[in-house]
């Protein structure tokens, strides 16, 4: 068997792939957080709960309505995005004139309420979601076997991240978003309905979280706590990448996933800690994050 650095190659590549998968979720979730933070100046603590709702939404679509995985990839983000739109319009928008801390407390509270409601209704043991037939099985890449579904998750996550980046950096709508992030009153004085732009930005960030939830449903079991365990790491990713940086959160998300995976090979006990170790080092040397703009 081929060995790399004293480790069997399939084990190494397997962990890199697992790292990329986790990285895909980190990237999608921190991307949504970054977009929301840029426009609303709110750290959306409900993000993990909305990710979980995305997974549940696809599970419900399948088990109650008989709608399968691929339509759910579009429908669940749409449904949860509309839910986010209502949340922003009715609750979150009331806090913009107050200190950011209130937004953090509010979204944290919303996360607890949402997760509590789902625990009441579905228990916390988790429910399986079958991988769609088309993506069953594995492909021999020569150096390792790759489960098809996992390859699909990485591919789709990369495409969605790049598309989001392109929308924000390369389109007129994205120019409005960037300008409003810099100076919202001025953009509004040009005739842009900034409050509506903010509402749709929040809904967009939420839809990204829900999309990640649908992707995660066949990998993680669909349970009310699935967001909580992921979101702590995602916040570390956001801090490392730099608050509000779009490309930063994508690159950092995938990068840290891989670092985590590699740590599992060489020092398994440290794999849960390594992200936070990186966070400490980055905060000590570059307090604004790797991709954060200096003030």
């Amino acid at each position: 068997m081929m060995m790399i650095l004293g480790v069997p190659a399939p084990l190494l590549f397997g962990q890199v792939l697992l790292g990329l998968i986790n990285g895909a979720f980190y990237a999608l979730l921190s991307l949504g957080l970054a977009v929301i933070f840029g426009m609303l100046n709110i750290i959306n603590f409900a993000h993990g709960a909305l990710f979980m709702m995305g997974a549940f939404c696809s599970w419900m679509l399948l088990n109650y309505v008989g709608i399968g995985y691929f339509p759910a990839l579009f429908l669940a983000p749409l449904i949860i995005g509309i839910f986010g739109l209502v949340l922003e319009k009715t609750i979150i928008s009331r806090l913009y004139k107050l200190d950011h801390l209130y937004g953090l407390l509010l979204t944290f509270g919303m996360a607890l309420v949402i997760e509590g409601l789902f625990r009441n209704a579905y228990g916390s043991s988790g429910m399986p979601y079958r991988i769609p037939d088309m993506l069953q099985g594995a492909t021999n890449l020569g150096f390792m076997y790759m489960p098809n579904y996992r390859g699909w998750v990485v591919l789709v996550a990369v495409i969605v991240c790049l598309a989001t980046w392109a929308i924000i950096e390369k389109t007129p709508l994205g120019a409005k978003l960037r300008a409003a992030t810099e100076n919202a009153p001025m953009v509004q004085a040009f005739g842009v309905n900034v409050p509506r732009l903010i509402t749709f930005t929040y809904a967009g960030g939420v839809a990204l979280a829900a999309f990640a939830g649908v992707l995660a449903a066949p990998i993680l079991s669909v349970n009310p706590n699935m967001g909580t365990s992921l979101i702590t790491t995602v916040f570390a990713v956001v801090v490392i990448g730099g608050m509000g940086s779009i490309m930063g959160s994508v690159v950092t998300g995938f990068g840290l996933g891989v670092i985590e995976g590699l740590t599992k090979v060489f020092w398994p006990e440290a794999s849960a800690t390594v992200v936070f170790l990186v966070m400490v080092i980055v905060l000590l040397t570059r307090p604004r994050g790797l991709f954060g703009k200096s003030a």
């Binding site: 960037r178 810099e182 100076n183 509004q188 004085a189 040009f190 005739g191 309905n193």
Partner: peptide, 26 residues
């Protein structure tokens, strides 16, 4: 402000408010 702008008044503010995250054309 957005409704005032839509009624046909446009402002060039004292601080100019050129956006650094946008290109000149944007």
């Amino acid at each position: 402000p957005n409704q005032v702008a839509r009624s046909g008044i446009a402002i060039c503010p004292e601080e100019r408010a050129i956006f650094g995250s946008l290109t000149v054309t944007e």
